[in-house]
């Protein structure tokens, strides 16, 4: 029975995902110049970015906790949330590329937001290269936690300053119609916010499964050490 008590958020996640997919494809959306029907990508592409950002923040918070506690579990959580963050990042790039092909006419353009994303992906891939190149478990956790926090701090200007310095092709920038407060009317919000919650919950679900796998592996490793 105790398992049932902890399952409600998974049920909520599935219900929200169904809602997002059905409502996202079928509801009436405002017609905006250039965007037209592709505005529906707000529920997928933009919401996935938000979820990715949440995953990366959680990863960084666990990195800080690891530095404080030296508990190997925090390190596992930190790395697995970063993993899910990268997964969402790739999904975001794919959905964004498909959208860009039909609104901008090219799969990839030299846009500051796209570049910022690819750099953020590079940072977290470097994070995993760093992890795999250190043998000792405690050293690995400590060093990668430090890099996680350092890189996150360095990526903040990337995400918040640089895209605002130059015009972006993205909706809402450079005179393009966008999802700003005056455009994003309340019908879009009714799906967008649930979508963010749904993907975030899905990410936590993914991460929790992977964390369990890593914990079992870690337990086996400890057993082997003791034998």
């Amino acid at each position: 029975m105790s398992r049932l008590k902890n399952i409600w958020w998974k049920v909520l996640c599935i219900i929200l995902l169904y809602y997002v997919i059905i409502a996202g494809f079928l509801m009436d959306v405002p017609r905006l110049f250039i965007l037209n029907e592709t505005i529906r990508n707000l529920f997928f592409h933009v919401a996935i970015w938000f979820a990715m950002f949440i995953m990366l923040i959680v990863s960084m918070v666990y990195a800080i906790r690891y530095l404080k506690s030296s508990n190997i579990l925090d390190d596992i959580k930190s790395s697995e949330f970063a993993n899910v963050g990268i997964f969402f990042g790739i999904l975001g790039v794919v959905t964004g590329m498909a959208w860009a092909k039909f609104t901008w006419g090219a799969w990839w353009v030299n846009d500051p937001k796209l570049n910022a994303t690819s750099i953020a992906m590079l940072i977290y891939m470097a994070y995993f290269v760093l992890r795999s190149s250190i043998e000792n478990q405690q050293t690995k956790g400590r060093i990668s936690a430090v890099y996680n926090i350092f890189a996150f701090a360095a990526a903040i200007p990337l995400i918040f300053i640089l895209p605002r310095m130059t015009d972006s092709l993205h909706p809402g920038n450079g005179g393009n119609p966008g999802f700003n407060s005056y455009d994003l009317d309340n019908t879009l919000r009714t799906v967008f916010y649930p979508a963010v919650v749904a993907y975030a919950l899905l990410g936590v679900w993914f991460a929790s499964i992977r964390i369990r796998i890593q914990r079992v592996k870690e337990d086996f490793r400890q057993l082997e050490l003791n034998v």
Binding site: I119, A120, L122, I123, A126, V129, L130, S133, I134, E135, T139, I143, V146, Y147, F150, A151, A154, A155, P157, L158, I161, L162
Partner: peptide, 25 residues
Amino acid sequence: ISAIASHAGNAGTLMAILGFPVILP
């Protein structure tokens, strides 16, 4: 970055991998 990379094997390559995305902004 150099302090981070110094703890790992093949530190030279790692320094570039870890450093370039961080230095880009």
